[in-house]
């Protein structure tokens, strides 16, 4: 037990997540061994992709501190998917659809960055505002109707599976997480992000370009939301104006569950990745056992509270 006691912060969270994940797996194994096949793995990863991408952006924004948070991610997912499809109808060559989708997301994210940096609005306020705007515009310009016109070759990518792993997860989610993890651990940018989150004033004093880093992170979060929008298009085969509904809260849950401190400076993307997989595995497990879906939200909520309290307790032991 002593080793566990010495764990703190991200390491403790990771250990907890793995323990919880094991509990879910063992529980499932005991009850329904038939669940364990490649198909289930594919299903879990398929439904993790969108949340993983959005959660990554959310996590990075929070990590950089300065009360960072991105409440607009769900709206950005919907709006970038809708804008990309609408621009096809206006004559854009379909080949450019992926680029437009991600670029639109990046621009929506950059707008958040501008509001936070340029106007010095608090991130909570700025992104609450853009949450209303992005999700509202996506619904209003379409009147709520799903948009068709996704090219066939995109569906091949979106619905493809290689060795049991969905192609979007393999080609988008994993590389994004790997790059982000690498950047955080091995580059100056990564150190800057942690330094900003830990103590912004000192970070400024030692010459870290805090504003530039923050702007890029918001734009990145938007670009990842755009990528998630692209995945939704390629997978569902149509653009739904409310596809990002609830993603702001879900991604926040994943980031917090993944051990990123809401004040920034503590945590890592590995935790977010583990948290996303845990959340989706849990949902899948509950569905496989035919447990009423109303328990899902409650269990996820309780899990979040539990992990936070555990983190808090571990800090108390150390002090």
């Amino acid at each position: 037990m002593r080793t566990l006691r010495n764990l703190q912060g991200p390491a403790l969270t990771l250990a907890l997540l793995c323990a919880l994940w094991l509990i879910v797996i063992v529980g499932l194994l005991a009850l329904k061994p038939s669940v364990f096949n490649l198909g289930t793995v594919t299903t879990i990863l398929q439904f993790s992709t969108i949340l993983a991408l959005v959660g990554l952006g959310q996590g990075m924004v929070i990590l950089a501190g300065g009360t960072g948070i991105d409440l607009s991610v769900g709206g950005a997912v919907s709006l970038s998917a809708i804008i990309a499809l609408l621009s096809l109808k206006l004559g854009l060559p379909p080949v450019l659809l992926p680029a437009v989708c991600i670029l639109t997301g990046a621009m929506l994210g950059a707008l958040n960055g501008l509001l936070v940096n340029g106007l010095a609005l608090l991130p909570f306020i700025a992104t609450l505002g853009t949450f209303f705007v992005y999700s509202g515009v996506a619904l209003a310009v379409t009147g709520g109707a799903a948009q068709s016109g996704v090219p066939g070759w995109l569906l091949v990518w979106g619905r493809g599976v290689v060795a049991g792993i969905p192609v979007p997860f393999l080609t988008l989610a994993i590389p994004c997480f790997a790059l982000a993890g690498l950047a955080l651990m091995a580059t100056a940018w990564g150190r800057w992000i942690y330094a900003m989150g830990f103590n912004e004033r000192s970070a400024r004093l030692v010459g870290i370009p805090v504003d530039r880093v923050r702007f890029i992170l918001y734009a990145l979060s938007g670009a990842l939301a755009g990528a998630a929008g692209l995945v939704s298009l390629a997978w569902l085969g149509s653009g739904r104006p409310n596809i990002g509904q609830n993603l702001e809260l879900e991604s926040l849950t994943a980031a917090m569950l993944g051990g990123i401190a809401i004040t920034g400076g503590r945590g890592g993307v590995g935790g977010v990745f583990a948290a996303v997989l845990l959340l989706v595995t849990l949902k899948t497990g509950l569905l496989q056992l035919n447990i009423n879906t109303v328990w899902q939200v409650g269990i996820v909520g309780a899990l979040l509270v539990f992990v936070l309290l555990a983190d808090r307790l571990s800090q108390r032991w150390r002090s």
Binding site: I69, L249, L252, T253, M256, I262, T263, V294, W295, V297, G298, I299, V300, G301, A302, L303, L304, V305, L308, L309, R312
Partner: peptide, 18 residues
């Protein structure tokens, strides 16, 4: 529990909805 309000109430949101 000394949990940040935004995250704590987010968790409770799920519990209350259930």
């Amino acid at each position: 529990g000394r949990v940040p309000a935004i995250v704590g109430t987010l968790g409770l949101l799920g519990v209350y909805r259930t």
